[in-house]
Every structure is written in structure tokens, then in C-alpha cells.
């Protein structure tokens, strides 16, 4: 068991950041419900409110733990997803030194750490699924694959319970695509935690 997997059993602070309209609230809800309702853990979620939720940098934070959650906000972030450069810059000040950092490789040219996993969520959603709006779901698929913070089974169940009827197949494909992006990148990575991937490799 890696150090990070062990960490996942205690309090895990996750932050999903991007710009309004990228579906981060939905991603947060699915992550929280996957962990809370299907994996049987405790969860608390907060999201940014007000005008910033409609453009500009926005975020959803999900705390996952095996114990009752006292403080519901992030204090030292274990898992950081950034889908825009602005969000990556705005919300990276309290990452743990060994945090998982996952960014959209096309939209975040300067991730907060050189150890960041860079994956082309938006480009892949657009090119492979013809639906750029499912980039958030592709990212969730990658998060489950890379971190193990949520089970893939729980994630899929939570997602299918949330999405509109008729889009189940698309969303399942998006999850699988995210997992594949993560696996491919890991395969090429020099070592765990230093995975990088580039759009042209896809």
C-alpha cells in the first residue's frame, strides 16, 4: 500500500477548480455521493457561491473521511483538480506537499507543481466523444484511476444517478476515457506521482 493509499483512509480534502460552466459543481456532487452514499464514507461538500459560480475561477470542495467530519472546508488539500490556469493559480496555496495534482494539460500550461499529472480532459472529450461538456466526467474517471479515493463502481453508480436520462451511455464512456487517459499516462511515466501526458500522444 502506497503512502497515498493509506492517506486515503483518513481525512482526504479534495478541491475541484475551474471556471463557471465547466461542471465542477456536478463533479463535486458525484464525487461526494460516490464516496458518501456508495463507498460508505463520511462526506461534506462546499462550493463557491455568487457571481464567481457563473464564470471566473470557481471551485467545489469535498472532504472524505472514515470519521465524522468536523471542519467542512479544506485546510490542507490532498487532491487538487484544475481545469483552467486561473483556477490553478487561484486555489493552489494550501496544497499538501505530496498532494495529487491533476490538471487539464491544454488549459493549464503552468501547473502549481512539476509533479502534476497533466491530462487532456477537454480535448479528449471533444475529439473522442464529440461532447466537450463531459470533460468534468472524464476528469472524475481519471481521479478514480489515479487516486483510489473513490471506487470506480461507486463513482459510476453515483454518476448515473445524477445525470439526465438518456445520457448514461455517454457518461459511462466519459468515465472510461478518463481512466484510460490516466492509465496510459502512468504507463509512460518515469515514476509514480510524476506522470505527464501530452495531447499529441493521444
Amino acid at each position: 500500500m502506497s503512502e497515498k493509499q493509506a492517506q486515503a483512509l483518513g481525512r482526504v480534502e479534495t478541491r475541484l477548480a475551474g471556471s463557471g460552466g465547466q461542471g465542477l459543481l456536478l463533479a463535486g456532487l458525484v464525487l461526494a455521493e460516490a464516496a458518501g452514499l456508495y463507498d460508505g464514507r463520511e462526506v461534506a461538500m462546499v462550493q463557491s457561491y455568487g457571481p464567481e459560480a457563473r464564470g471566473g475561477a470557481s471551485k467545489a470542495e469535498v472532504i472524505i473521511s472514515d470519521q465524522a467530519i468536523d471542519y467542512p472546508l479544506c485546510t490542507r488539500v490532498d487532491l487538487f483538480l484544475a481545469l483552467t490556469q486561473e483556477a490553478a493559480d487561484a486555489y493552489c496555496w494550501d496544497l499538501k506537499p505530496n498532494a495529487w495534482i491533476i490538471v487539464d494539460s491544454d488549459l493549464v500550461s503552468h501547473p502549481p507543481s512539476s509533479k502534476a499529472v497533466r491530462l487532456p480532459f477537454t480535448a479528449a472529450a471533444r475529439d473522442k466523444l464529440k461532447k466537450p461538456m463531459v470533460a468534468n466526467v472524464v476528469a472524475l474517471g481519471a481521479i478514480a484511476e489515479i487516486t483510489g479515493v473513490i471506487s470506480r463502481r461507486g463513482l459510476e453508480k453515483a454518476l448515473l444517478a445524477r445525470v439526465p436520462a438518456g445520457t448514461e451511455a455517454l457518461n459511462k464512456k466519459a468515465l472510461a476515457l478518463g481512466a484510460k487517459l490516466a492509465r496510459d499516462a502512468a504507463g509512460q511515466a518515469p515514476s509514480e506521482g510524476q506522470a505527464t501526458a501530452h495531447t499529441e500522444d493521444m
Binding site: 461526494a32 463520511e42 462526506v43 461534506a44 461538500m45 462550493q47 467542512p72
Partner: peptide
């Protein structure tokens, strides 16, 4: 308060 109002929990 705003935090308790907007917070989601299991």
C-alpha cells in the same frame, strides 16, 4: 449561517 446553509453532508 451561510456555511451551514450551503454545505452538503451525508
Amino acid at each position: 449561517d451561510e456555511v451551514v446553509a450551503h454545505m452538503r453532508e451525508k
